[in-house]
């Protein structure tokens, strides 16, 4: 029982970060119907951003996150204008391949610069004990920050003018254009925020686990699963999707070999796509 408790707690903590990782993907999907295949490499960049600032400038990882976020935002806007804007209304294949090309470029350059060897951010805040469970404080901080960032995103989308514009464009782009919303700028901004969230998630993950330049790929696949669980296009739903995935990953290994986790994850993913493509939490749009 204790073991199960620990696993669930562990899974929950991780689930918040997973949710954050998926949020960017699902925001971009919701606003512009684009599956961003450069999501994983951007998560990797977030990891390396924190790693470099921490290792070479001795910056506190949580301060480094601010720079990583800014970098993610700018990078996303650049990617949008270079790779996505031109094909935004083309068939799905075009945006899939355009963002995949970006992924190749990032991964290719990243591998050339950083090689594929594992790194880690050697930073610890000790650990706390709850009942019988011992949890590293970095995990708790990561979970709390994920929740805060999600809350920030929610407030941004609902309380600010550009946030409302984003929701309007997500709802119906041509109607929003008619009402005078500068749609291209809003799309670019949304893409930027999506990649910013991915980079932030990567940065947080780097404080938890060792990683390589290719590590983002795993989280990209997880993000797909989470996005579908929470409803693609519903960024807040992603947080719940992340929690579900985290808990599943926590408890499945308690009663079957851990290697079965991905089988169940992806099986569930396909199943949900089939029976509830709008996700477990209903609403299709944010």
């Amino acid at each position: 029982m204790d073991f199960l408790f620990t696993s669930i707690l562990d899974g929950l903590m991780l689930g918040f970060v997973y949710g954050l990782a998926a949020m960017g993907l699902t925001l971009i999907w919701g606003v512009m119907n684009v599956i961003n295949l450069s999501h994983g490499p951007i998560i990797s960049l977030g990891m390396f951003g924190v790693y470099l600032l921490f290792t070479f400038l001795g910056m506190n990882p949580y301060i480094a996150l601010i720079f990583v976020a800014l970098f993610g935002l700018l990078l996303g806007i650049v990617i949008y204008f270079v790779a996505v804007n031109r094909v935004i209304d083309a068939p799905h294949l075009s945006t899939l391949l355009a963002t995949f090309a970006v992924a190749m470029i990032i991964t290719g350059l990243g591998t050339a610069v950083f090689t594929a060897s594992p790194r880690n951010v050697d930073y610890s805040l000790g650990s706390v004990t709850i009942g019988n469970a011992t949890i590293p404080v970095t995990r708790i901080v990561a979970a709390v920050l994920s929740v805060l960032i999600t809350a920030g995103l929610y407030l941004y989308l609902h309380r600010t003018r550009s946030g409302r514009y984003i929701r309007a464009v997500a709802n119906n782009r041509s109607a929003a254009e008619l009402m005078g919303v500068p749609s291209v700028r809003i799309l670019a901004l949304s893409f930027g925020i999506g990649t910013m969230l991915a980079a932030l998630a990567g940065g947080l993950i780097s404080t938890l686990f060792p990683f390589t330049i290719l590590a983002g790929g795993t989280y990209e696949l997880k993000s797909f699963v989470i996005g579908v669980l929470g409803g693609l296009g519903n960024p807040i739903g992603a947080l719940f999707g992340g929690l579900i995935l985290g808990v599943l990953e926590g408890i499945i290994p308690t009663f079957m070999p851990a290697t079965w986790v991905p089988v169940l994850e992806f099986g569930l993913f396909v199943l949900i796509l089939l029976v509830r493509p709008q996700g477990l939490f209903g609403a299709k749009k944010s």
């Binding site: 119907n33 599956i35 899939l96 797909f224 089988v263 992806f266 396909v270 796509l273």
Partner: peptide
């Protein structure tokens, strides 16, 4: 019979899911 009901990006995602599920299954 099942996933071809999905259109556009949803179909693409489902095929990714199927491949990953199959790989994970064969792995076990």
């Amino acid at each position: 019979k099942a996933i071809l009901r999905l259109r556009g990006g949803y179909f693409a995602l489902a095929t990714i899911g199927v491949n990953e599920a199959m790989r994970a299954f064969i792995n076990n």
